[in-house]
Structure formats: C-alpha cells, structure tokens
Simulated scan of single mutants.
Amino acid sequence: MRKTTEERIARLFTDVEATVRLHAVDVCSGREISVAADEQVVLASVFKILLVLEFARQAAAGQIDPRERVLLSAADRLGGWGTAGCADDVEMSLRDLAYFTMSVSDNSAADALMRRIGVDTVRLLAAELGLDRTRVVGGPRELLRSMFEDAGARDEAEFAASYPGLDPQRIRGFRALDPERTTSGTARDVTLLLRLIWQDRAGPAAACAWVRDLMARQAFRHRLASGFPDGVLVSAKTGTLPGRHIEAGVVRYPDGGEYAVAVFAETAGLAPGQAAVDSAIGRAARIAVDDLRSAASGADRPLGPA
C-alpha cells in the first residue's frame, strides 16, 4: 500500500533514530502538511525570527534608530558564532546586530537586541499575531544561564569543562530542553509567523521585507536548503540544542510558489552534529513541498524544477 506523505516523513526520522514535528503550508493557498504540528516544542534559536521582527517593526515605526551603536564587551559574549566568538570588544549598529542574529545565529547580538527592545514587547508581538501556543521566557542569556545552573556550573568555562562528563539523563532534564520551562511554541505557530511575514501582515511592509532579506542571508545550508535544487531560494533560521535539530523557513520556487516549513527533530543521542538528521530535515521538507506543489499543479501553477 502506498504510504501517505506524513508516513514517509515520519519514517525518514525513524530511520535516523529521531522523532519529528513538522508543518508545511502553501503561503498562497493555505494547503498544509502536518506531522504532530500542534505538539509543544522548544524553539531554541528559531525564536530569533520573532525577536528581529519586533526590532524591525520598531525601526519602521521610528521608535528606535537602527543606526544606534552598541558596544559588546567580554561580559556580553555568550559563545557561538559571530560577535559571540570575538576576542576583543566590538561596536556596531543595532541593524548589524540583527544581521548577525539571523545570518549566523549570533547569541551575543541577539541578547543585545533583546535588552534594547525588551522581552515584554516580544511577548506582546506573539499575542498580537495570534501565536497562541508561543511562550517567550527570555533570550539567549536566560537560556544559557539555565543550562549552566542545571549542569551545576558557575560560568561558560566551567560548563564547557563539565558538560562532556554529565549523565545524559541529567542533560535531558535541563529546563532548556523542556517546552514547559523554556521558550517554546509549535511547528504550526512558526509557519503562521512565517506566512504573516511573507504576506506583509506581520507589521509594516518594510519591516517584513527586511526580515525576509535577513533570512535569505542565513549562512547555514545543511538542513532545509539541502533538500532543494539550485534555483530554489530557501530563507530560513536554524536552531540547535542537545538532542534538538531545528529549522524553519520559506522555500520559494522560480514560478513564484512559496511554502513555509518548520521542522523540529528530536534525537535519542545528544551530539550537536548529526549529519543524517540534518539531511533528513531537508529531505522531509522536500517531500512536504513536493506534495503541496502537486496539489496545486492542476490549479494555478506548474510544478517547476524537481
């Protein structure tokens, strides 16, 4: 018997010892593919889409000057990519902090933006946009602080030294991995957010366009983008935590078809780099989008490249 699209997607992750929550939707028509899309999941760095959108809205409304300069010192370094890994103090504009937040998931840049615009405004934005299952606990600093505390470490250096020896069950008990105790949402909420941004309904058109541009400049191409051929634009935001491999974005075909996809993979192992899981994210996204395009092909657009 021929497997359904949802069964094919679930099997992909079973084969790599992972479970998946996925939602894919045609931005234009609203046709959708859902695999446990309403289960609460940890958002990790996918939350930064909402953060940068709020900043873009405030900038577009003249409430904040995107050229405002910010100094990031040693006390602001949270580890990871971008300014987070710099050895010396860095000064840049707020809008450049937003660029690093989205392009390389810079935790230090995101934390500085969060301090400037306020966590409460991000929570209000989620409510305004109808993201009813999205809860915002804090930014990268709060997430990392909870991980240090749960590991019994006083700082990043102590955490890095002790983490490899921690019992896996203790790690799985971290608040940062529990949707009930950290920033979380659902795959469906995330694709709703993306759809609103792509339709200029998440704020001023200029703000939405800027967020779309930043997402198109993400440096990481090993998850969603890996499932699609050249000529297909994938604008996305990745997220990674122990045992969590996440990416959400919009896939745009040359014929104009646009598809919002959110994939949350949870693995049995805790290693941050699992190429088979990352590849499965791209393949699952492709299967879902192919299904949506097939459903639309007889109506308003050709299939385009395979």
Rank of each mutant, 00 (worst) to 15 (best):
A207T: 14
E91S: 15
K3A: 14
L94C: 05
F148L: 04
V251G: 04
V122E: 07
L53T: 02
D96G: 13
D65C: 13
S235I: 13
I246H: 12
P254Q: 06
T186E: 00
L233I: 14
G304V: 13
D278L: 06
W198F: 14
F228Q: 05
E39P: 05
Q40E: 09
A44V: 03
M215S: 06
R223Q: 08
P168I: 08
R283V: 03
L113P: 07
L192R: 14
G243T: 01
L124M: 11
P272C: 10
Q218M: 04
V234E: 01
T14C: 04
S162Y: 03
F174T: 00
D38G: 13
G227N: 07
H222L: 07
T4C: 10
Q169P: 06
I197K: 09
L43H: 03
F174V: 00
A24T: 01
T83E: 07
M147V: 07
L78C: 08
A296R: 14
A36R: 02
A248M: 12
D255N: 15
G138H: 13
R252N: 08
V136T: 03
E32L: 10
A248G: 09
A187M: 08
L241P: 00
A151M: 15
A126F: 06
V70C: 12
R11W: 10
L166K: 08
A206F: 11
R293W: 09
A98S: 14
V46F: 03
L72E: 03
P242M: 01
L193C: 07
D65H: 13
G165H: 14
D88P: 00
V277W: 00
F55Y: 15
A161T: 11
F174K: 00
D89E: 15
A268D: 04
G139Q: 07
E6W: 04
W198T: 02
G231N: 13
A24R: 00
L97H: 12
S73N: 10
L224A: 07
A160P: 05
I9M: 05
D278S: 13
Q199L: 15
S235K: 03
G82V: 11
L143P: 08
T238Y: 03
A10W: 05
L214F: 10
V190S: 02
A75M: 12
G269M: 08
A225V: 09
P179S: 05
G257T: 11
P164D: 09
S297K: 11
L113E: 09
A202L: 09
D15R: 12
S105F: 10
I197V: 15
V250S: 02
T4R: 08
T83W: 08
V190P: 00
A288M: 04
A299Y: 07
S73R: 15
A74N: 09
D278H: 10
A216T: 10
D65V: 13
E156L: 15
T83F: 10
R141W: 04
W198I: 05
L78A: 04
A157G: 10
S103Q: 14
A153Q: 09
R181F: 11
D278Q: 11
R252I: 07
